[in-house]
Amino acid sequence: MINWLANPARFIRVSEKAVPWCGWTAAAVLALGLFWSLVLAPPDYQQGDTVRIMYVHVPAAWMALSVYLFVAVASAVALVWRHPLAEVAARSAAPVGAAFTFVCLATGSLWGRPMWGAWWVWDARLTSVLVLFFLYLGYIALVNAFDDPSRGGRAGAVLALVGVVNLPIIKFSVDWWNTLHQPASVMRIGGPRIAVSMLVPLVIMAAGFMLLFALLLMVRMRTALNERKAMALRLNAGAVAPRQPEPEPAVAAHTAIS
């Protein structure tokens, strides 16, 4: 599948069909998930309705990590096999991942104010996610800092791989340190420790976020590929088009007047 899609022209053709499907499914799943989590799901016995922030916060956090992993894997593929689409995929995914990370931090902050009494605390989980956000920003800045786009892609790929060190730190920060942030309650050994009535909308929201990511990724990749094509066309046109004959110098007239 991956190899078959490696051809950019084929990717453009396939994604053209896939984008509307993906878009409508994402909209439907997100609508269902939002309705379920904001209306149907029960309020928490301690947190009340504030718990509903969790249905956005947790999927956003999962996506923040997964998208970074995606960027890193795509970067490794781009570095090792010089895969033409992998580099485009990595650089297209990064801003989406940065947005998910920001949503995760912002919703966490909104939840923390009523629950912990502070917008922000410097515990290990929060700090490591903030570092992840900065890593995304650094990656985006580096990728766009070169005149030659492929140079930026390769430099970014090395950086993305270096930044992978942060992922296990984020994942296990709640186990290694005594954090204010609660430890994992869904993806843990021994099964989820969360009521089914809350787990179902959470999983639906996670699926919706994943579809949203797939949609945004395809749209951004198509834009990047078209941009590249347009640039190549422009360069070709510039190289082929005959030079305009230069106008005759008007020196003689000037000298005549003076």
Binding site: L142, A145, R151, A155
Partner: peptide, 14 residues
Amino acid sequence: LSLGARRRSVVLSL
């Protein structure tokens, strides 16, 4: 990584 980048020192610190 930042060799040859535009606004190199800013990218470097980021």
